[in-house]
């Protein structure tokens, strides 16, 4: 029993090279236009990038100078006088228990808010996309409808409710609010992504003996990876950078970094030696998260499954 004839006949298509005889010749004018056009585009991109990065660079340099220097001259002078630079501000900041506890508050708020949203939205997204139950479409419409409710209108009623429940000012209350307002978009996003997974794949898994949860865990989650990763990054950044909800629902014991930094701002004079390193520290974690997960944004995970 052998299958050699078929095995040779349908090898994967070899890359088509050489046979075409090179790219078609283009006129001089069109080549100049594309060369110049490409150059202009690159210059433009560099300008935009510099424009966006400059303040961040300034913040970074300022965070390395002491208060007196910062008050006397602009941050760029440090580029000519590197002796001004030191890690003293960072040292002082990290030694400040108020700041470090607000850093950990941010972590304790952000990580559960992100995990809860991702887990709940994955399960709900699968149910809305692939399970049949009465009222499914109406329920999904309600979820989508919640997308248009602005956070601001809920602040006062929720604050009253939290007071009644006794969780006002606690980390748990802040997490609950973030999860509640993160879910509609998260469910919407994942439901639509999951619905795009070919039905045949789920049916194949069902024929292969998969129960509902097995299909979810073994087929949907791996294939939904890119969407879940993006959602996780977005949700993490939103919560990490949130100030409004922290201002309303946290107290000084449970306040995250954003609120702690905000309280350091003064109307007259500045304490940039606290603000600059603080802001920079709060920036590092989201950057790390972003670069750690961006590799999951791979396109074409579904290639080769059907057709």
């Amino acid at each position: 029993m052998t299958t050699t004839p078929t095995a040779t006949a349908d090898a994967p298509p070899a890359p088509q090279g050489g046979a075409a005889g090179g790219a078609p010749k283009r006129s001089l004018a069109s080549r100049i236009v594309s060369r110049v056009g490409g150059g202009v585009l690159q210059v433009l991109l560099v300008v935009v990038a510099v424009f966006w990065l400059l303040p961040t660079l300034g913040l970074f340099v300022a965070s390395l100078r002491d208060e007196a220097d910062n008050n006397a001259t602009g941050w760029w002078t440090a580029l000519l006088a590197p002796a001004q630079l030191s890690l003293d501000s960072y040292g002082r900041l990290l030694g400040d228990s108020g700041f470090t506890s607000s850093f950990w508050n941010t972590v304790w708020i952000t990580v559960p808010s992100t995990l809860l949203v991702v887990v709940i939205a994955s399960l709900a997204g699968y149910a809305f996309a692939w399970m049949e139950f009465p009222g499914r479409d109406w329920l999904f419409l309600v979820v989508v409808g919640l997308l248009v409710v602005p956070v601001q209108v809920a602040l006062i009623p929720v604050a009253q409710m939290y007071g009644f429940l006794g969780i006002f000012g606690s980390i748990g209350g802040v997490i609950l609010f973030h999860v509640a307002f993160g879910l509609p978009f998260a469910i919407f996003l994942l439901r639509n992504f999951f619905a795009g997974i070919p039905r045949d794949l789920l049916e194949a898994a069902r024929m292969d003996g998969g129960k509902e949860f097995t299909i979810f865990r073994r087929v949907i989650i791996p294939l939904g990876g890119p969407a879940i990763a993006s959602l996780g990054i977005f949700q993490f950044l939103w919560v990490w950078n949130d100030l409004l909800i922290a201002m309303v629902f946290a107290d000084t014991g449970s306040q995250p970094m954003t609120r702690a930094l905000q309280s350091e701002m003064r109307q007259f004079g500045t304490n940039i030696d606290v603000l600059a390193p603080g802001a920079f520290l709060s920036l590092i974690v989201p950057l790390v998260v972003f670069f750690a997960f961006q590799r999951y944004y791979v396109a074409g995970t579904l290639a080769g499954s059907v057709k």
């Binding site: 794949l201 069902r206 024929m207 292969d208 499954s305 059907v306 057709k307």
Partner: peptide
């Protein structure tokens, strides 16, 4: 009897291979 317990196998038109 649900599909998973019928002990039959199906070949789909689209093949439905698990891409991952």
């Amino acid at each position: 009897v649900p599909a998973r317990d019928r002990d039959v196998a199906m070949v789909f038109q689209s093949y439905a291979l698990y891409p991952h």
